[in-house]
Design a binder for these strands. Structure first.
Lengths: 211, 211
DNA sequence: AGCTGTGAACCGTTTCACAGCC
DNA sequence: GGCTGTGAAACGGTTCACAGCT
């Protein structure tokens, strides 16, 4: 076992679409059909699913409920992973209010912020803790996943603290490059980076006209 | 010319770190030095830069100011790309307040939302327009890049409308799979997907102990 | 007949190792 | 001597095409 990173990154998408299909009452789907709704090629989909030792039926297709269960198991969606969100500005609030949170197997174990005006308030059902108590919060909640919605300047120091407390997976929205020890996984979402990538292709399109 | 997608995705990161270095007064840096701060291998960095026909000096390293200019040109950071943000909830507000917006070569041309309580208010210096006037807003601002911060259910219909109006690059925060015509580039940021990827590896770590 | 599962071919990306220049 | 630029090798991922099951 051990799926390739690219396969892992597609599984959540498959799972999401399978949920929609099963809600719509569909019971079985072919690789071609599912590939179309998720936007990949049928062979890619079949290869991905074959890595999970999957349950397709030749001549028929995939049994949706079974496939959901299998992917869900692979991603650990039943575990209700406790997640700590650090930074309760607009971004932190948006994340806290994200509807898919619990349906995808997570729960907000704590919200943390340094602002006295925010500490103690309740956001989406969770009381905001003081950033000064970050260590205690992580110990108490046993969270191993942290989401960083802090200003970039604060990110590295927060990372150091949560890693020291046993967090091994970090999702950061700060643009800074983060240093972490081996074994800690960081995923970065950077608005500026995404826009600049789009701008590159946008510029190429306009240059093409000139050429 | 025509850079590979992987190279393009790294250029914004290089540019960001170069800015920090030049602010710190550094004038020259070796591939090893820069690679370390951005978190890639020296050979990867050299290969990437060589694709831009880059200005390194053997025995010395790269001239930071020159390299910044070159990458900036490649990404079109001087063009002040007009961007329309659709959806002014917490997420939309967070995006609108993003500090790197203008420094990275973009400007918020418009904010759009369907909520009467929000329309007309000023957010980060921009007045919120009515979603009903989306077409007019895009025509007026000549925006070709749109950022979607809408609920998932609304995403596809908004995409159809902006694409029809000439938008060719979309950054979406909605988890839904979006259908667009050829030539339109979509980049998706999906919190649930990112967390599920982390959860997969998190689960593997805990299984490893058992094994 | 239809559709999955998969070895083999293909393609893009990364890493290596060194020639070439300062 | 030091560091870039770059062909060549290695790697990983995707696509192809078909054997095999229902």
């Amino acid at each position: 076992m051990g799926l390739s990173p690219t396969t892992v990154s597609r599984l959540p998408v498959y799972l999401r679409e399978l949920e929609l299909l099963s809600q719509a009452g569909v019971e079985t789907i072919s690789s071609t059909g599912l590939a179309e709704v998720v936007g990949v090629t049928p062979s890619q989909l079949r290869k991905d699913l074959s890595h999970l030792g999957s349950y397709g039926t030749r001549g028929v297709g995939y049994h949706i409920a079974g496939l959901q269960a299998q992917i869900g198991r692979e991603l650990g969606t039943a575990r209700g992973w406790p997640v700590v969100i650090i930074g309760v500005g607009n971004l932190g609030r948006a994340l806290a209010g994200y509807a898919g949170f619990s349906s995808r197997g997570f729960r907000i174990a704590a919200l943390v912020d340094p602002d006295p005006a925010v500490i103690g308030t309740v956001v989406h059902g969770v009381e905001v803790s003081d950033l000064a108590e970050l260590e205690a919060v992580i110990t108490r909640t046993k969270a191993t996943i942290a989401v960083l919605a802090t200003p970039p300047a604060a990110a590295q120091s927060v990372v150091d603290r949560v890693v020291h407390q046993g967090v091994t997976s970090i999702l950061t929205f700060a643009a800074t490059v983060l240093a972490v020890p081996d074994g800690v996984i960081v995923r970065k979402v950077d608005l500026g980076q995404e826009l600049q990538i789009l701008a590159y292709y946008e510029q190429r399109k306009s240059e093409e006209v000139v050429r």
